[in-house]
Structures are given as C-alpha cells and as structure tokens.
Design a protein around this nucleic acid. Structure first.
Length: 475
DNA sequence: TTTTGAGTTGTTCGA
DNA sequence: GTCGAACAACTCAAA
C-alpha cells in the first residue's frame, strides 16, 4: 500500500515555495490536493463577495495547473475536519499536510483538527508558507511582541528568508480513481447578479499571473516606486495584495525576486511594505481581539458620533460624500475591488475623524468589498488611522482630503477617472468643487447638489471636533 | 538602571 | 511662496 497524503490547500494557492507540498512529495507516493469550502468556520469574518470572486478564479487556476502536472484539485464543502476524515477513509490517506493560517478563528480550528487526526493515527504536519517569520519567533527586548514598526523591521531585515525555486515540482502523482469532488461552480462563489465585469477587467487571479506581476514590478516598475506609489492616478504600486492574500505568491518568493532584480531604493521600499504586512500578521496573532476592539484600550471610550451614522456611512460607501478624492476612492473600490493605498488612508480618515464613525464599520465595508481583504492588514490599517492601534497615527493627524488631493493627485487624474461628472473642472477646483465660483461651475456643466453632491461635512469644523473628541480621552 | 532619541503615510499657524 | 513649531504618549533599543 503506497503512502498517501492529503494536501490541504487553504490560502496558499500555489505550487512554488509551498513547504507542505514539498513535504508531501518527500514522504508519500500519492498526494491528493484538496480544497474544502467551509465559510462558517471563518465567522465572523466570512469572505466578502469580492474575495469570493477572486477565490473562485484562483481555485480554477490552481486546478488547471495541477491537471497540467498530472494531478488535479479535489473540491469539497462542509466541515473541514469531517471532510478530511471522509477523504482519508476514501483514499486510505495516512498523512495530512497544510500551510498555516494565523487568523483568530482559524488557529484554534486547525489545532483541533491536527489533534483529532493525530488521535486517529494520521501523520499531520503544518508549515509556514505565508510569512517571513513565525509570529512567536520574534519579540522585543522586554519579551513582548513588537508594537512599533521600525524596531520590528530592523529585527527582521538582516535575516530575510528567500525561497528556493528548485523546490517547485515539475510533475505530480495522478489522483486515485473514485474520489469525486464538487465542481467549482457548485461552491457558488461567483455573484448571482453579474456585477463582476469591473473585477474581471482589472485582475487576473492565479499563481502564474501573480508571478508575472511580481517579476514585472520588481524588475522594472519598482525603480520609481518610492515616488509613484503615493499617486493614486498612476499605476505606481505593485498591485500584489490580493495575490499575496490568497497565497498565489509568498513573501519569501518576493524577497527572492527582489534580490535577483538587484538592490535599489525601489525594492527596499517595497520590501518595507512587505514588512508592514508581516507586522500586521504578527500583531493579529498576538492580539486576536483587535479586529473588533482597539488595541489601545483607552480608545474604547472614544465619543463617536451620536446620531446619523447609518445615513452618513451609506453616503461614504456609495462615494457620494461630495469630497472628490474620497468619492473617487470609494468608487474605485466598488468598481474594481481595490483602492489605492493613499485613497484608503484619506477615505478612512474622513470616516473616522471628520464623520466620527467607528473604524469597525469602515473596516467591515472594506472587508466586504476588497479583493485583497485581509484581516491582519485591514485591522492594522483602520486602527492606525483611528489612532488606537500599534504604532498608530498621532491623534492630531487628520488628513485634509483637499490638501492630499493637491499633493498626490495634482492634475486630478484620479478624481476625473472615477468621478467623471467633475471631468471638466479646472485643476484649481478639482479637489474642492464647492469652492469654485458659479461661472466656473457653469462652464464645467456642473450644478452642485444635482450633478455632484455638496460636501456632507465641513472639513475645517469637523477637524476641530475630531481633535476635541480624541483629546477628551487623553490622560 | 537610567536616560535619551527616534518613531510610515499630516495640518495649521505664524513668521 | 517656504519654513519651523506645535500638536501626546508610549515603545524600543542603544548609550
């Protein structure tokens, strides 16, 4: 009887730099790649519609790659442990391998599964494919998890691990006969109403596309990453975040590709952003309550807006705040499932500071709409903006969307792209149409309140109120 | 042990 | 136009 392994794919949808796969091939003659759809087990952070769209296409790509190597992906749905046990019974599998996840709901689930399978005599091993370091490996001088990025990154930098491309398999053992999985369509990941044209136009999920994107970025585009990454009207960022989230490419591979591309400011700056991703994941592991509650407990008592939250939240979500840079970002998100980082910060600052709406509500909307929705990154980002997280923005840092627009979108390229009704406004007013004199609005074919909303909030006044609110919980 | 300096992403004000 | 100061409190590491 040949040794048989179940290779449990989760958010590591790739063959390269996949230690669970390497191990399975070392130890077993037969390897059965499995994906189990179990959204309930991720509650309360079940994937949103945009993420599910990505997952569908990523699984299709993985299945196709596996078939090309002589294998295939067995897709099932149900309770993860029960499905693994069922498949083991069906195939006589004696081993089970997977790569770790670190989300608060999944760490205990996977621990339980490992214990249960081992109790039945199966050999189980899990590996690190998604991070540069295990979260429990790093601690600051006082043996606590790092709470400040710079010391964290200084600790990481000298020993960044890189991947070994020679470990990518060129062929796989065939699937045994008689295991019928579900069809990918049966998982119902695609939207019923076909609103996903914008996603399909913007993205190519899958390992091959992820690798191509990483190489194109690090070998050429990264050269002027430090200057261009902040401009939402340009394609100056890597756009790797959804690929990374689903593990179509891993951080060690990115270190490796960056090294091959040669040192430079661009790759240094990019690896630093990868360091922020790492920092976010380590923080989530050590502080699993932070998707719901502020890391800094003093902020639990922050006086959020008393009334009107729902209506304002809806206006913000739809990109109808009347503040062009924010609306452009929110519409880009809705249309493409992604928002430029600069726009994310400005939109989040408006929601939490100017509108004084709890950051958790903004985080939930991002979670539901982003193709790169990632609990660790999303939590860190929102807590940073709200000022209540690790290495948070100082409370007095309130973004002014007009100034941000003038600095980072000086010609209004980004705003014109996503708010076409503002297209004819001259650049002087593109970020503040309310300040334009009547004849300019007229010449631009624009009537505020009809073609484009008047601003829902006075930026200067709400800034003062935000500072007062944040000041009220000090000391 | 204590002290010191630095720390992703900003804005406003007054000179 | 530009420039520096002020806007906290805390973490971390090096001196």
């Amino acid at each position: 009887m040949p040794a048989t392994a179940l290779l449990w794919f989760r958010r590591d949808l790739r063959l390269a730099d996949n230690p669970a796969l390497v191990r399975a091939l070392q130890v077993c003659e037969r390897v059965i790649p499995v994906y189990i759809h179990a959204p309930d087990e991720e509650a309360p952070w079940e994937q949103g519609a945009a993420s599910r769209w990505w997952l569908h296409h990523s699984l299709a790509a993985l299945d196709s790659t596996l078939r090309g190597l002589g294998s295939g992906l067995v897709i099932t749905a149900g309770e993860s442990l029960a499905e693994l046990q069922r498949l083991a019974g069906l195939t006589g599998a004696t081993h089970c391998f997977w790569n770790r996840l670190y989300d608060p709901a999944l760490v205990p689930r996977d621990t339980r599964i490992k214990q249960a399978l081992r109790a039945e005599g199966m050999r189980c091993e899990s590996f690190n494919a998604g991070l540069l370091f295990e979260p429990w490996e790093l601690s600051s001088g006082n043996r606590e998890p790092y709470r400040v990025f710079t010391p964290f990154w200084r600790r990481c930098q000298p020993e960044l691990p890189a991947s070994d491309p020679h470990l990518t398999p060129g062929a796989l053992p065939p699937l045994p006969r008689g295991i019928d999985g579900l069809s990918l369509q049966a998982l119902g990941l695609l939207p019923r109403l076909r609103w996903d044209a914008g996603l399909a136009a913007a993205w190519h999920p899958g390992e091959a596309a992820a690798l191509a994107r990483a190489k194109a970025f690090l070998r050429t585009e990264a050269a002027d990453y430090p200057e261009r990454r902040d401009r939402p009207g340009e394609t100056g960022t890597s756009r790797l975040s959804p690929h990374l989230h689903f593990g179509e490419i891993g951080p060690r591979q990115l270190v490796s590709i960056a090294r091959q591309a040669g040192d430079g400011k661009g790759s240094d700056a990019f690896l630093r952003e990868l360091g922020w991703r790492e920092f976010a994941h380590h923080l989530l592991y050590h502080f699993p309550h932070t998707p719901q509650a502020p890391l800094d407990e003093r902020f639990a008592g922050l006086p959020w807006r008393a009334e009107g939250t729902e209506a304002l939240l809806g206006t913000w979500q739809r990109g109808r705040t009347g503040i062009p840079l924010v609306d452009a970002g929110m519409r880009e998100l809705w249309e493409t499932g992604w928002m430029h980082n600069r726009a994310r910060m400005v939109a989040a600052s408006l929601l939490t500071k100017n509108l004084r709406i709890p950051w958790q509500l903004g985080a939930r909307w991002f979670w539901d709409t982003l193709v790169d929705a990632d609990l660790a990154n999303n939590t860190l980002g929102w807590q940073w903006t709200a000022g209540c997280g690790a290495d948070a923005a100082p409370y007095f840092r309130v973004f002014n969307p007009v100034r941000q627009g003038e600095r980072f979108d000086p010609d209004g390229t980004y705003v014109r792209r996503w708010c076409p009704e503002l297209g004819a406004l001259p650049r002087t007013y593109i970020h503040q149409p309310w300040a334009a004199p009547a004849h300019i609005l007229g010449a631009s074919g624009l009537s505020l309140g009809r073609d484009y909303p008047a601003p829902i909030v006075d930026l200067a006044e709400s800034r003062r109120e935000a500072l007062a609110a944040w000041e009220s919980i000090r000391g």
